[in-house]
Simulated scan of single mutants.
Amino acid sequence: IAQNLVKVGGPAIGGVLVAAVGSAWAIGWDALTFATSALLFARIDLKPGAVKVRAGFLADLWDGWSDFRSRRWLWVMVVQGALVVPVWLVGYQLLGPVYGERFLGGAGLWGLVVSGFTAGLVAGAAVALMWRPRLVGRVVCAGTGSLALPLAAMAAAVPLPVLVAATAVAGTGLAVSMTVWSGLVQERIPADRLSRALSYSTLGQLVPVPVGYLLAGPLSRAVGVRATLAGGALVIVLAAVVPLLIRQVRALALAGQPAHEPVPAEKAGVSARAPR
Rank of each mutant, 00 (worst) to 15 (best):
A251G: 15
A197T: 12
F103P: 00
L129R: 14
Q186N: 12
L151W: 05
L89C: 00
F34P: 02
R72K: 14
S220L: 05
W181I: 03
L58T: 14
A148S: 11
G143D: 00
G143P: 03
S115C: 08
I44Q: 14
T202G: 14
T118R: 02
G81C: 03
L238D: 01
E261I: 11
V211H: 08
V98W: 04
G143T: 04
T202N: 12
F34D: 07
G116H: 04
L109F: 07
A259K: 03
G183C: 03
G111Q: 04
V211Y: 13
G232R: 02
A50Q: 12
A268F: 15
L206S: 09
A227S: 14
M178I: 02
A274H: 09
G256E: 09
P275H: 13
V139W: 05
L135N: 13
A20L: 11
V98C: 01
L174K: 00
G28E: 01
A119P: 00
A59P: 03
A274T: 13
R134E: 00
P86S: 11
P262I: 09
R221I: 00
M130Y: 13
V90D: 02
L5A: 12
V87K: 01
G56L: 10
T167M: 13
G183L: 12
R247G: 15
R196M: 06
G256T: 09
G56K: 12
D67S: 13
